[in-house]
Design a protein around this nucleic acid. Structure first.
Lengths: 339, 339
DNA sequence: ATCGTAAATGCAAGCGCTTACATATTTGCT
DNA sequence: AGCAAATATGTAAGCGCTTGCATTTACGAT
């Protein structure tokens, strides 16, 4: 069986080209260190044998993998897609490869993924949000692999972050909602346990209420997974309450879309009967009718910048720097003045 | 600096526990081969040192990585998300880890990703669709890593596949459209070059036309990337033609949503002025108004089955078996009888 | 007690690559 | 032409782990 023909190794190439393995290795990794004639001979052998370097061996010998890992909470919706895409483009340009896993918003899965990625030799990690066990940061430090947090900006943390101020962004939007005359507010939030972004967004709403003389305690809060269906369900719950809100600020666009759909189904007109807002400004927010008033996040910038900064940490053992990006409110048609 | 404290190795653990590295290794990989007392001692040392095995070393020594790679065309929309999720769940349960990369629908990127994943020691690969250079299949064979194709079902290919019959599914839908009285048909397709699924879907429409006595040549075809914006643009083009279609069959839901949105923008009512259909039945198809008439694909079944079959190939050197899953037309409100 | 067998552990040879360091070859000057 | 310096290549020592085989220990049966 041809199955028995084993995969060619550096040694095979070296023999075939009549040079040492060191030369072949140099040819592959730093071609200019080898004279043209030799190089050509080696490359021909590589071609002929269909040789591909064994990554594990390379990582082990070089203690460098040119791989960056990213653990995102979910791939099921587009929240992280755009930012990750930009991140990937940037690191690819700098010669790195991206490995992605998703944690399904489960801390224990995330931890496992982090360990997996590190064990696989990732040179650095992209993490979403700051909230996780200290143990994990200890581990990362011990293993000496730098990490960068995105989608959140909280300076002074152990790990640098590049993102936006979730609290302030939401506070601005809530402020606008209140200024439009809404006083019975509700929020459909993601699960805030272990999710600083969700928590800060809720806090932002409360702060805005406080600031405008409303009691923060009056805010109706429903926490639920970030899924369209959950958003719909939460909307149903909210409208079954005695004191129905006139505006619902959702923790993200996915939830908001669910709410909008459910409102439609239940015969409420958005925004005339009820205002609904989102967060993130993913494509979905433009597609749904009415278009979602939401908070635009500079996903691509964030991804790109996170990549640049992380690579700096990797290559220069830099401690890494945090950056705060600006968000802005984008008005579409799901929010209007209270009647 | 504590940075200098290097990462603990098997050796460190062995010394600390007063056993040989072999015993530690066995403790970690096959605990029952080691007597309880020893095991405990070893585990304590592992804890104390915060030891984590070095993956590269393990792969190299064991020639097995318990890793499966998947290369999907895009993560930007949900087309592959659900199936991949199911795939991931299944392999995780069987003790494997999933590594995902996306090729952005570019064959050369896909090839690179395949090589990367294989070099990284993937035990098997999940690929989308059959269309790719023979060279790649040669490589996979040479490297002795099994692959499974999903989202397409074409028996008798070099690589087994699990999916649905794209041609037949689209043919059924087109048949239904024609039966509703439409005769001026158009399609907004993905780029068919290097994409068997796209090509077969177009073919399915033509076959249905043929079968119903329409000339297949009369089908207006626009090929464009699978993006909402492209779908919108294609719609614009189609409606600028002399002989406007009364029904547009889109290559997938993303394209269809773009078309629906654009129709709305241009003042066409869907489906009264024009019928539009999708393919895939992703969440978006339910969200958009009017709801998209589309073809439901059993994403989760497909993912799960692909995983099971691929693992069988890996573990039993089985040649792998192909399976054909059924699709079904789901009627929503974007398709109606021609006037 | 003694011996045979089975269970537990240790020894040491790699896995395929990179990279100091040593050696050989070429180049540029005088 | 001759020599030092620069350049090109080779040698070989690991990187951290697994695993076949050898050795030791434990346990019953005689």
């Amino acid at each position: 069986m041809s199955k028995l023909r084993s995969v060619p190794t550096l040694d095979d190439v070296a023999k075939k080209a009549g040079v040492s393995t060191a030369t072949v290795s140099r040819c592959l990794n730093d071609p200019k260190r080898v004279v043209a004639a030799t190089r050509e001979r080696v490359m021909t052998a590589v071609e002929a044998l269909g040789y591909t370097p064994n990554f594990a061996a390379r990582v082990m010998a070089a203690k460098r993998s040119f791989t960056i890992g990213a653990i995102i909470p979910t791939m099921e919706n587009a929240i992280f897609a755009r930012g990750l895409q930009a991140f990937q483009e940037e690191i690819h340009q700098r010669g790195y490869t991206l490995l992605v896993s998703s944690s399904a918003y489960k801390p224990e899965v995330e931890e496992e993924q982090i360990r997996t990625l590190v064990a696989r030799g990732a040179d650095g990690l992209l993490l979403i949000g700051h909230d996780r066990e200290a143990r994990i940061y200890d581990y990362l430090e011990q293993q000496n692999v730098p990490a960068m947090v995105a989608w959140s900006f909280i300076p002074g943390k152990r790990t640098p972050s590049i993102g936006f101020d979730n609290r302030q962004a939401m506070m601005a939007l809530a402020g606008k909602v209140i200024e439009l005359g809404h006083s019975r507010l509700a929020t459909i939030s993601g699960v805030s346990q272990g999710n600083d972004r969700a928590r800060l967004r809720i806090q932002g709403i409360k702060d805005a209420m406080q600031q405008h003389g409303l009691s923060p305690d009056a805010l109706s809060i429903i926490e639920t997974p970030y899924e369209i269906e959950s958003g719909a369900e939460a909307f149903r719950l909210l409208m079954a309450q005695d004191n129905r809100p006139t505006a619902i600020l959702c923790g993200n666009d996915v939830l908001a879309v669910g709410a909008v759909r459910q409102a439609d189904e239940m015969g409420y007109r958005v925004p005339d009967d009820i205002s609904i807002t989102g967060f993130d400004d993913i494509e979905l927010a433009r597609i749904v009718r009415p278009g979602l008033t939401t908070i635009h996040v500079p996903h691509r910038d964030m991804g790109r910048k996170a990549a640049a900064e992380l690579i700096d940490m990797i290559e220069n053992s830099s401690p890494g720097q945090s950056f705060r990006l600006d968000t802005k409110i984008v008005m579409r048609n799901s929010l209007t003045r209270a009647k």
